[in-house]
Design a protein around this nucleic acid. Structure first.
Lengths: 237, 237
DNA sequence: TCGTTAGTATGGTCCGACCATACGATCAGG
DNA sequence: CCTGATCGTATGGTCGGACCATACTAACGA
């Protein structure tokens, strides 16, 4: 008679979530295909539409389905980008607080310092090729600020890709998306682009020479200078 | 006549979410206090309970309110832990896939390598004191495997805290929570504990001597050995 | 063959109801 | 006066049914 585990009172939606979750990961529900209609699911689970909709909503925030307002939800197999998407719902709120942008940017610098250091130590021939190409594309875009921004991002992205761990490209996308609003609005010019390109080249050269300390130093200079621009532009700190 | 921005068809709940979000971040709704009752909110926003509930659910997944099944939702000011909590909903799914655990663990090793390197270069006197204390507590717990696990985690946590960036403690909590299921079940013994303690001590000593390379190497040895245990225990890869 | 159009499927919202439980107040007993 | 049991109310969880607007589809006509 003792209501021992009273805390196990579960929401009915949780069961539906678990079931659909299993079906998605198992491939029973195919990726990129629409989810069954709500009214079908309620018959299937013997639950009310309320419960079904709550379950779908939960799946949506977990990135397992893509839920555009008036359309059928689309099944999405979970990937590392899903994590970032989920996190992305909260990050903007943090950026409005105290040193939020500073903290996020600091973590990016810290990570990229480690990435370039690793690159200097362990870059493969293919890595070097990829970096060289990214750098060349960056140089070619100096006079086109929009394209320069793209190739700039791509150059840094190459660093993230070198770990061959899907977490890092996802992280890179997170950083660029979250910091973009504070970055895109900055004034740009070919001169400034050239400065950034030279910074990228310095990093690349240091990696080529297998000099981790120099690579890290060059990266630090580059990103700290960029931070200075952001800081004064938005009057932070 | 052109339905230019037809995609702006918003869910009614979004407006409620935005409003409550603003109230929480502005402090109008106090942290740790219960949210107004659903029936009050519907009067206030002129919306149906359906919409209100959906809004609350959304806030819950964003970590702005804590929503235990049968209780009043509790207001939670957004923090870096909220991000990790949101991400934590998806991470377990990824860990069941292919090299999921490997990827996550790899990212942890990579981060901690950077952390100990930084510690060796830039640790303050207070940092050293904190590390020494964490290490001492770890040594004292060698014969108590449960306590050893706690102090082990705390030692690593000290490394994360040294950046004085709240992102890192949150990350540390994420790593420990996500990897815990694969870690806690491993067999433990005073001998193994002693080995881990010695590894911690080697890291600490290298930091003391301001030798980043040695610190990083010691950390790598330590975590790679731990990975080996996990790998064979769970027959991964 | 292709654009138009009508009909249907489906998601979004609302309403009103009932249940179970957390909460708060009231009351009985020491 | 304090403590613990009791009871009524507030509140979240679930249900079923309804209506609307729109995405989708198939029939239709130029």
């Amino acid at each position: 008679m003792e209501p021992v585990s009273a805390d196990t009172s579960a929401r009915a939606a949780d069961a539906v979530v678990a079931a659909l979750e299993a079906r998605i990961t198992s491939g029973d529900l195919v990726d990129s295909e629409p989810l069954p209609a709500e009214r079908d699911l309620m018959k299937e689970f013997g639950a009310s539409r309320t419960v079904i909709r709550e379950a779908i909503s939960a799946l949506s925030t977990r990135g397992l389905v893509e839920n555009r307002p008036r359309f059928r939800p689309i099944v999405r197999k979970p990937g590392y980008d899903a994590v970032l998407q989920a996190a992305g719902k909260v990050v903007p709120l943090l950026l409005t607080q105290d040193g939020g942008i500073r903290n996020l940017y600091d973590s990016r610098v810290f990570l990229e310092r480690a990435l370039v250091r690793e690159a200097a130590v362990a870059a493969t021939r293919d890595d070097i090729v990829a970096l060289r190409e990214a750098l060349a594309a960056n140089e070619a875009a100096i006079d086109d600020s929009l394209e320069f921004y793209r190739t700039d991002t791509a150059f840094h992205g190459t660093l993230y890709a070198m770990r061959r761990n899907p977490i890092y490209p996802a992280l890179h996308e997170g950083y660029t998306n979250w910091l973009a609003p504070h970055w895109e609005r900055m004034l740009r010019s070919p001169e400034r682009n050239r400065g950034n390109y030279l910074a990228h080249k310095a990093i690349f050269d240091a990696i080529l020479e297998r000099d981790p300390d120099a690579a890290e130093a060059a990266l630090s200079r580059h990103l700290n200078a960029a931070w200075e621009y952001v800081r004064v532009t938005f009057d932070l700190e």
